[in-house]
Write a protein that binds this DNA or RNA. Structure first.
Lengths: 235, 235
DNA sequence: TCTGATCTGTGTGTTGTCGCACAGACAGTC
DNA sequence: GACTGTCTGTGCGACAACACACAGATCAGA
C-alpha cells in the first residue's frame, strides 16, 4: 500500500487547536473505530456524538427514495461529521454513513454545545470549517448537475484516496452508484473506461489507483477547487 | 397583485432579535433598494456588506462556465446573504445576484464580525440559519440530480413566489435557465406544460401564478422540505 | 467440491436533455 | 410605420443516462 499523502493519522481540525483547548475537550473525547457501512446518524435522529475522522471517511447522504441517494458531502481528517450540533440544532437532514473504515475522535454533542462558545479557537475553526463545507456542498451540487459520470467518478475516487491516505481501498460499484446518484451500470461503464486507460484497477470491490496524475486529469476542476477550500481553512 | 403570504415586509431573521440587540446593530444598518440583476458580490470578492432581504430575493449561484450556472441557494426574508462573513471568511465561493427587486437591510461586514460574538441572540440565530441554509443547499443538490426540469421549475416558482410575497413577477426563460442549470428551450417546454395545465400564465418575462395548489402539487417534495426547514429555525 | 451470495459485464430499447438553427411575436423608439 | 432588440416557440439529430434483464466471474463456507 502506497502512502500518497503525508498523513499524520490525526484529525487536522483538532490538531490545529491550541493545547489548552484540546485538553479541555479531552475528557469528553474518545478515539473510536468506525467500520464501513456503519450509520452514525439518520435524518431526524438526535445526534449524540460528533466525529472527527482520522484515517476514516464519513459520507453525508441525501436520499430522495430508497433507490435514489446522493452524497452531498464527504468528511475526512480535515473536518467533522455532525456540524448541525455546532450550529445549535440537534439533528441533521442528512444520513451520515462510514464510507471508509478507520479511526475517529468521538465527542459528545453536549460537550460541543457547552465548549464551543467558551473555546475561542475551536469556535473560530468550526466556523471556518462550516464555510469550507458549505463551499464543498455548493461545488458538488453544480458538479452533479453539469459533469458526466466519468469525470465525477474520477473526482470522487481522488477525494476518497486523499482522505484515506491510500491508493487502495474496498468499494463496490453498487456503493459508488449510491454516492454519485447514478445507476450501478453507469459506474461500471465509467470505471471500465478508467481501467482501460490504466488509471485504476479494480476487482470485486477492491480498487487500486495506478496513476494519480492521470486520474486527476480526468477529474473535473471541481476536485481542485474543493481540495483548495478544504486545505485553506486550516491555514 | 395578490398577496399570498402574510408578508410583514421586514426581514424575519432580524425581526426575531430582541430589541436591545436590534438597536445595537442599528447604526451600522441601512435599508437599501436592490434591483433585479444587481450583483452583490462575485466569487472571491471581499464582501463589504451582508444583506437581510425584506421583499427582495438574492440568489447564490455557482458557475462552472459562462454558459453553465446553477442556483445553489435562494435567500429571502427568512435569511441573509453573505453567510461567509459570519463564518469568519471575508469572501464567498458563490455569486450573489438580485433575483427579485425589493428592499433589504444592509449591514457592514465589520459590524457582523464585531457584534456577532457579542450579541448572543444574533449569534444563535445566525447559527441556526446556517444550518437551515445548508439543509436547503443539500436538498437542492439532490433535487437537481434526480428531478425533472418540470418539477424543479414548479418548485422554483413556488419558492420565488413565497419570498416575493406575490403571485406575479418578472422573469424571463433565459434567466430561469441560468437558475435551474438547464437550457432556455428546456424551460420553455416545462413552462409551456405548466401554462397548458393552467397553473401559470406568462408572457415576455411576466409570470403569473394562477393556481398555487396545483403548482405545489406538480413541484417535488423538495419544496415542502425546504420550506419546513426555512420556517422552523425561526421558531 | 458444490452451493449460494456477491460482484461485475453487457445487450436492447427508451427517455430526457442537449446543441443548434431559425421563425414568430411583441414592445419600445425614432 | 418601420426598425431593432428581446422574448418565445419549435423542429431535428445526437447522446448520456435510464430501466430492465441476464449471464459470467469470483469468493466464502458447508
Amino acid at each position: 500500500m502506497i502512502q500518497t499523502t503525508d498523513l499524520t493519522n490525526e484529525n487536522r481540525l483538532l490538531a490545529t487547536l491550541p493545547k489548552s483547548e484540546y485538553k479541555r475537550l479531552g475528557p469528553s473525547m474518545k478515539r473510536v473505530q468506525l467500520t464501513f457501512g456503519e450509520v452514525l446518524y439518520e435524518p431526524g435522529d438526535i445526534i449524540k456524538f460528533v466525529y472527527f475522522p482520522e484515517d476514516s471517511i464519513v459520507s453525508l447522504l441525501s436520499s430522495m427514495s430508497a433507490r435514489s441517494t446522493l452524497e452531498v458531502g464527504m468528511v475526512g481528517s480535515e473536518g467533522m461529521a455532525g456540524l448541525s450540533v455546532f450550529m445549535g440544532v440537534n439533528s441533521s437532514s442528512t444520513r451520515a454513513i462510514v464510507q471508509g473504515s478507520g479511526s475517529a475522535m468521538r465527542l459528545a454533542s453536549s460537550a460541543v454545545r457547552y465548549e464551543s462558545n467558551r473555546l475561542s479557537s475551536l469556535h473560530r475553526l468550526m466556523h471556518r470549517y462550516s464555510h469550507s463545507f458549505l463551499a464543498q456542498v455548493s461545488q458538488s451540487s453544480a458538479c452533479n448537475r453539469f459533469h458526466s459520470v466519468n469525470t465525477r467518478l474520477a473526482r470522487w475516487l481522488m477525494m476518497t484516496s486523499d482522505r484515506l491516505g491510500s491508493d487502495e481501498f474496498r468499494l463496490t460499484q453498487e456503493f459508488m452508484s449510491n454516492m454519485l446518484g447514478v445507476r450501478r451500470e453507469g459506474v461500471n461503464k465509467a470505471a471500465g473506461m478508467l481501467q482501460t486507460d490504466k488509471m485504476i484497477r479494480y476487482s470485486r470491490g477492491m480498487i487500486t489507483i495506478l496513476d494519480r496524475d492521470l486520474l486527476e486529469d480526468s477529474a473535473c476542476q471541481c476536485y481542485a477547487i474543493i481540495k483548495a477550500e478544504s486545505d485553506a481553512y486550516l491555514n
